[in-house]
Nucleic acid binder design. Sequence first.
DNA 1: TAGTGGTCTAGACCACTCA
DNA 2: GAGTGGTCTAGACCACTAG
Lengths: 278, 278
Amino acid sequence: MTAAAGEMGDGGERRRPITPLPRGAGTALWDAIRADLLDRIKRLEFAAGEQLPSEASLADGYGVNRMTVRRALAELARAGAVRTEHGVGSFVAPQPIRHRIDDGNISLLESMNSRGHAVRQEHQQVITHPDPAATGDQGVPGLAQLAGVGLSSPSELWTFPAFPGPLVEYRYKLLLDEVPWCRSFAVLPSQLVPEDWDRDKSVFNAVADAHDLQLRRDDRRFSALAADARDAALLDIAVGAPLLLLSGTNVDQHGRIVAYIVHRIRGDRAEYALHVPR
Amino acid sequence: MTAAAGEMGDGGERRRPITPLPRGAGTALWDAIRADLLDRIKRLEFAAGEQLPSEASLADGYGVNRMTVRRALAELARAGAVRTEHGVGSFVAPQPIRHRIDDGNISLLESMNSRGHAVRQEHQQVITHPDPAATGDQGVPGLAQLAGVGLSSPSELWTFPAFPGPLVEYRYKLLLDEVPWCRSFAVLPSQLVPEDWDRDKSVFNAVADAHDLQLRRDDRRFSALAADARDAALLDIAVGAPLLLLSGTNVDQHGRIVAYIVHRIRGDRAEYALHVPR
DNA sequence: TAGTGGTCTAGACCACTCA
DNA sequence: GAGTGGTCTAGACCACTAG
C-alpha cells in the first residue's frame, strides 16, 4: 500500500489537503495549527475515532517542524479533542459525550446505573489504616492531597467520631461503557464494612444493608484540577487534562459520618447535574 | 550585580543548589525536574510568591537543555503551582487558596460578598441578541460552546418562553482580592433589565427588585474543562489550566426562566460547596 | 522490521519588561 | 540594553506497536 497521506477512502472527497498556514500573524504557529486541526475535526474532515495523519506527515504538510505539530496535538489532547497512542498514532476522540450524573443517589455507581448506563467498578487497591485517634493523626495520610490542597480544615477531614477504630480506604475506578470515567477513593470505618460485600456493587449499599442504616449525602464540594501522571494512566487521558473534583461525606440517619469520598472525574466525560425541587 | 543563581538572600541557608538529576530511570527528565521543583516549593525552599531561577540558570543547574526545563515549568504552571510572566520570570504561585462558594445565593457575586470577600465585578461586554423566536434560532449563538459541548439538548437552552423579545448577554469577570477568579456569562430577557441598574452590583438582584420577583436557582451543572487562550488571558492562568464549569438557570417564584448563567472558574481558586440540610 | 509517538539537544531569533 | 520567557528549527535517539 503506497497510500499518500492526503488520500483516504471514506469522506475523502471533502478533505482538504494539509497546506502551510500564514505565519507570523500575531498568533503562534502551533496555535494556528491547533485551530486548523480542530476546525477540520469539527467539519468532519476527520471523523470521530479516525486516525489523524502522523506527526511527521502533518509537519511536512504544514511545512513546519515536528515539534510545532506536537505542541498543537498536545493541546488538543489536553482539551479532549484528540487521543494519542504511543507507537500507534493520534485519533479524533470519539464523540465527547458528557454523561450526566444526577444527584440523589448515595454512590456514583448507583447514580449511573439508575440511568441505564453500563457501569463497571474496577478495584485498584484496598488499604487499611490504623485508628487515627490512637496514632494522633488527623485521619488518612496522603488522601488530602488527592482531594486537592486546602479543601477543608484538616480537623474536620477523615475522622469518624462515631465509629472509632481502624479505617479502610478503597481505591477504584469507574468505567462507563468500558471507557475509564472516574478515579475514586472512599474511606470508611473498618468495622462497618461487611465481610461478604460483593465487590461489584456499591460498598455504601453494603454498609447500609448490613447495619440497617439510611445513608445520605451530607455535603459535596466541587472543584477542578489537572490530571497527574497517575490519573492520566488510569483514565486514559493526557497529563494535565481537566478533572472534575468531587468530594463529599456520607452520613446515616443519625447524622453520624460514615464515609468520605473523593472522585476525580474526567471533565470531558461528565457533568454533574443538580436540580433544585423548590 | 554579579549574584550567582544559587545564592540568594532570604531563606537561602536551607536552599539546596540545583544539581543534575539521575537520568533514564524510567521517568522522563522533564517529569523528574517537575517533581524536584515541586518538592522544593513544598519544602519552602522557594517561598510563595518568590521568583524562581531563570529557565537558563535552571537548565544550567540541572545540566539539561532549556526546553526540558520549560516542559517542567509549563506542567507546573498548568497545575497552578507556578505562574509565569513573559519577560519577567517564573514565580511560585501565592498560596493556592480555594475560596469556598456556598450555595444558596442567586449570584456568584453575592455568594462571595456574603462571605466577606472583597469581590469586584468587571464588565467585558454587553451584547444584544434579537428575539430567538423571531429568527428561528434556538437562542444565543456561540454561547453553547462556552458552556461546553453537549451540556444539554439545544431546545431547552437559551430561550425564555415567558419573556419573548430580544436578549441581553453580559460578559464579565469576577475578581477576588483583585485576583481574577472567574469568567462569567449571563443571558437575560432584555425587557427585564432595568435601565438604572448599578453595574457594580448583581444584575439578578436588579431584575428581582425592579419586577418584584423572587429569583432562585433552578438547576446547576458542574463539569471541568481546559482554559482556552481567552480564558488564560482574562484569568491570568496558563492555557490548558483546569476550569470548573458551572452553568445554571435562574427562575422566579412562578417557575419562569429568567436567566441562564455560565461560570468558568479557576480550578485552583475555587471550590463549590453544597450542604444538604436534610 | 517499519512506522509511530516520546524525549532531548543545541542553537537561533523574537517579544516582552524593566532599569 | 540586559535579561527574561515564547517560539521554532533540524536532527538525533529511544520506546512502543503492529504486521
